[in-house]
């Protein structure tokens, strides 16, 4: 189990950067959530998708500080090499991502906090080949915001059924 109960209606997970890079953690977290939160199959997909995007942004742009634009296969290969290299450096590798789920009467709030220096969503959206995540989160959630200062992404789902 990754998620541990905190106060009533609140669960928290602390995830190593490398685990998020290598493993389908979003799917596992949503499976765990389903043990204590009831939501429809449609909502399951929306939550998993947004969690996946949020976690990837938290590790790649946040914890590993990979900020280069990805416009070609060469850019992509270069970024992958940077990611693999930084995963060997303790400064980056030891950073974690905190996921906090808060369940309200009808809604769910996810907070995804990384330990990087913060990044600009506007800049990330310019990276055309891989920059559709925030647009899709806008479509699939009921709202999200990213605070560069606290390096926290907050995603809201208003109706779970």
């Amino acid at each position: 189990m990754y998620l541990s109960p905190q106060e009533a209606g609140m669960w928290e997970a602390r995830l190593p950067t490398e685990k998020i890079i290598r493993e389908p953690i979003a799917a596992l977290l949503v499976e765990e959530m389903q043990q204590f939160i009831r939501f429809s199959e449609e909502m399951r997909f929306k939550i998993e998708f947004c969690l996946q995007e949020g976690l990837q942004n938290a590790v790649v742009h946040g914890n590993l500080e990979v900020t280069m634009p990805l416009l070609s296969l060469e850019d992509f290969e270069h970024a992958q090499n940077i990611i693999e290299h930084r995963l060997t450096i303790p400064l980056f590798n030891q950073r974690q991502v905190q996921v906090v789920c808060r369940l309200f009467s009808e809604s769910l709030e996810l907070n995804i906090k990384d330990e990087g220096k913060g990044f600009s969503i506007a800049e990330k959206q310019k990276e055309t080949l891989f920059g559709r995540g925030f647009m899709l989160m806008t479509e699939l959630s009921d709202g999200f915001s990213y605070c560069q200062k606290t390096t926290t992404l907050q995603i809201l789902f208003k109706k779970l059924s």
Partner: peptide, 17 residues
């Protein structure tokens, strides 16, 4: 069964190729 923005990016790379 599932695709994210990273997967979409890979499809775009294949398309460019």
């Amino acid at each position: 069964e599932f695709i994210d923005s990273g997967g979409l990016g890979m499809l775009l790379l294949a398309n460019d190729m």
